[in-house]
Design a binder for these strands. Structure first.
Lengths: 136, 136
DNA sequence: CTTGAACCTATAGTCGCTAGAGGGATTATA
DNA sequence: TATAATCCCTCTAGCGACTATAGGTTCAAG
């Protein structure tokens, strides 16, 4: 049995975030001490790690609810989990592609060596989209 | 002189977003028709394009305020613009690196070919961070 | 028993919009 | 000129995933 502070330290999830997850129904409301403070048992740590990891991978709170639900029923087929993962993968790949275009453009414009704004590529490029080398 | 709807169509910035930018001080409050509707002249289009483009590159509203301010003063040195761009570049590169690690992991776990949750790599990997091949 | 750290709830703020309600203005057609 | 369709107005609230603050209570160490 440990306090929310300890749980936070052990999982790396901030205290208000833990309470938020409880509110969102991702973790069950734990027992309380006589003075109404939350007291957790170890099993919540696994669940919190699952949640944290999923968030890092970009799954939404709603996605995670579904994944947690699934993980509670090992006999169920796991298409849903796969679909979610595959969808996230697509998202991630699209974001990478977009960011790489931005990287390219930012690199180009930050190489400008003008001294005043009048001839600065940063400003010029932002002002005139037609100067972009890529489409976005 | 054109209406907010026309401005929206021409710049691709949605109507409420235009009003929001006005509220945030990115664009000046325009003239009004007799019936209190906004009437824009062409010059705001450039400014809106600048804003839109900057947003696409990931600059914050506050950043853009600074950049617009700069662009209004061509005689000023442009270090600030460069710094902002360089910082954005770093951000973007960090995000790319992180996303690529996620991509790797998602690819791996979505290749799972189990039929039930009991042996599903998606669920397992999310549950047990130690299975990750990458650190995050 | 005291003190200071940790905890509680509830509410508001963050960012960059977006949606909705409840109305008024403009424009095209009859 | 009347009317209908479309556009526009302001104001307020909502989104997601937290984060911060205020004002109070409880816990654990000395």
């Amino acid at each position: 049995m440990f306090s929310i502070g300890e749980l936070s330290k052990r999982t790396g999830v901030k205290i208000p975030t833990i309470r938020y997850y409880e509110q969102m129904g991702l973790i069950a409301a734990p027992e309380r001490s006589e003075g109404n403070q939350r007291r957790y048992s170890k099993d919540v740590m696994q669940r919190l790690s699952f949640i944290r990891h999923s968030r890092e991978l970009g799954f939404s709170i709603e996605d995670i609810k579904g994944l947690l639900e699934l993980s509670q029923h090992p006999e169920k087929p796991c298409h849903d989990a796969h679909n979610l993962a595959a969808q996230r993968l697509e998202d991630v790949q699209a974001r990478i592609a977009k960011l790489q275009r931005l990287e390219h453009e930012l690199k180009r414009i930050s190489e400008c060596d003008a001294n005043t704004v009048a001839h600065c590529a940063v400003i010029e490029t932002l002002a005139d989209h037609s100067l972009c080398e890529t489409v976005h």
